[in-house]
Simulated scan of single mutants.
Amino acid sequence: MNRDPVASTNVASVGYDAASQTLEVEFTNSSIYQYYNVDEAMYEQFMQAPSKGQFLNVYIKPSYPYSKVG
Rank of each mutant, 00 (worst) to 15 (best):
E40Y: 08
V58F: 12
S63M: 11
D39S: 05
F27E: 07
Y36N: 10
I60K: 10
Y16H: 03
Y64V: 07
L23C: 01
Q48R: 15
N29A: 06
V11L: 08
A19T: 13
R3I: 09
A19C: 12
G53P: 05
A49E: 08
Y16S: 01
S63G: 10
V38Q: 01
Y64P: 04
S31Y: 12
A18W: 06
I60F: 05
A12F: 11
S13C: 02
F46N: 02
V58N: 12
K52V: 00
E26W: 05
V58R: 13
M47D: 04
E40M: 10
S8V: 00
Q21S: 14
G70L: 08
Y59V: 01
Y66W: 15
V38D: 01
A18T: 15
K68N: 08
D4W: 14
G15P: 03
G15M: 03
V38Y: 06
Y36L: 12
N37Q: 13
T22P: 04
F55L: 03
K52D: 00
G70F: 10
N57I: 06
M47Y: 00
Y66D: 11
P5T: 14
F46R: 00
V6E: 05
F46V: 02
S51F: 06
I60G: 07
A12G: 02
V25C: 00
A49L: 09
A12S: 11
D4V: 15
A12M: 10
V11M: 06
Y35T: 03
S20M: 10
D4Y: 14
R3W: 04
I60W: 07
Y36T: 05
Y59L: 02
S8H: 05
M1T: 13
V58L: 15
Y59H: 15
Q34D: 04
S67R: 15
N57A: 13
V58A: 05
D17F: 06
S8W: 02
I32K: 10
A12E: 13
V11C: 08
S51R: 09
A41N: 11
V38M: 09
V58G: 01
E26F: 03
G70W: 03
K61E: 01
Y64K: 08
T28A: 09
G15R: 03
P65F: 07
F55R: 02
Q48F: 07
R3Y: 09
P5L: 12
Y64S: 04
V69M: 07
Y66N: 12
K61Y: 07
M1S: 14
S20E: 08
K61N: 08
S67T: 15
T28Q: 13
N10M: 11
K52S: 03
Y33C: 07
E44S: 12
V38S: 06
